[in-house]
Computed example of a mutant assay.
Amino acid sequence: MTILGIDIGGSGVKGAPVDTVRGELLEERFRVPTPQPADVDSVVEAVAEVAGKFHGIERVGITFPGVVVDGVTRSAANVDKSWVDAPAAKLFAERLGLPATVLNDADAAGAAEVAFGAGRDQSGLIMMVTLGTGIGTALFLDGVLIPNTELGHLEIDGRDAELLASDRVREADELSWEQWAPRVERYLRHVEMLLSPRLFIIGGGVSKKSEKFFPLLDIRTPIVAATLLNNAGIIGAAVSAEQAAAGPGPQDPGAIEVDAAAQAERG
């Protein structure tokens, strides 16, 4: 079974077929810019453009930068508000003509890291934090996902945390690593106080530069960079699609698979 993983981000929509046993891309990923505005119709077409670059695909897993419950997108912090309460899995399945699974982007990235990367064989409470356009989070207790945590929107000093410490803010405000690191530390310390995780896994594009800011962070919890980097969302989306095909399980309670053919038969 060939599964395509597609990751919808604030700046790009990227995808590739995935080897879900090894956690590796089977082909070079293809990327298009995220439409602006990132409304439902435009993003669906961008996903279709990515999917159209690959052949022999039997099902698709798609990440979304927001809360996803039973295939419906419930929030839209970094995309157009038309996504609130949109039947995303149904829309993607109908447009692509493939069974589709949709889940939160940080949950997908975290699932990939727990299965194949920095969180593999880790027990206890593990937290994935993606620093990118916003701040995404994923929590895993003994390897089982607790979906849709959205802890990037915690209030820090009266502000939404991702408006303080995301990588987009670092770039937009032209902050040095020495200026930005205390903001990340403030956020991670707040999460430490609330949850006492055993490990932080830092993902997002900035994880490739972990040596620039990890040494500047003073926190008690061990912290590691994501090993799958920007491919984590693609891999996690494909793994979740495979799990959904096998039936609901503890790893994908926020995702639902929609079969395009079954939708067509129901009219």
Rank of each mutant, 00 (worst) to 15 (best):
T2E: 12
I6D: 02
I8V: 14
G9R: 13
S11P: 07
K14P: 10
G15I: 04
G15M: 00
A16L: 08
A16E: 01
E28L: 07
P33E: 13
P35W: 00
Q36R: 14
D39G: 10
V43T: 07
V44S: 04
V44A: 06
A46N: 02
A48Y: 10
I57V: 15
R59V: 13
G61D: 07
T63D: 02
F64V: 05
P65L: 10
G66P: 10
V67F: 13
N78G: 12
D80R: 11
D80W: 10
D80V: 10
K81N: 02
A88I: 06
A89D: 01
A89E: 00
F92W: 14
L98K: 13
A109T: 09
A109W: 11
L125E: 01
M127D: 07
M127T: 12
M127V: 15
L131M: 13
T133C: 12
I135L: 14
I135P: 06
T137F: 03
A161W: 00
E162F: 01
E162M: 03
E162T: 10
A172C: 04
R189M: 05
R198S: 13
L199M: 09
V206M: 12
S207A: 15
E211Y: 13
F213Y: 15
F213Q: 08
F214R: 04
L216R: 02
L217F: 11
I223W: 00
V224F: 06
A226V: 09
N231A: 13
A232Y: 09
G236W: 07
A238F: 05
A238S: 07
S240F: 07
P248W: 04
P250W: 00
D252T: 15
G254P: 04
V258D: 06
A260P: 09
A262S: 14
A264K: 15
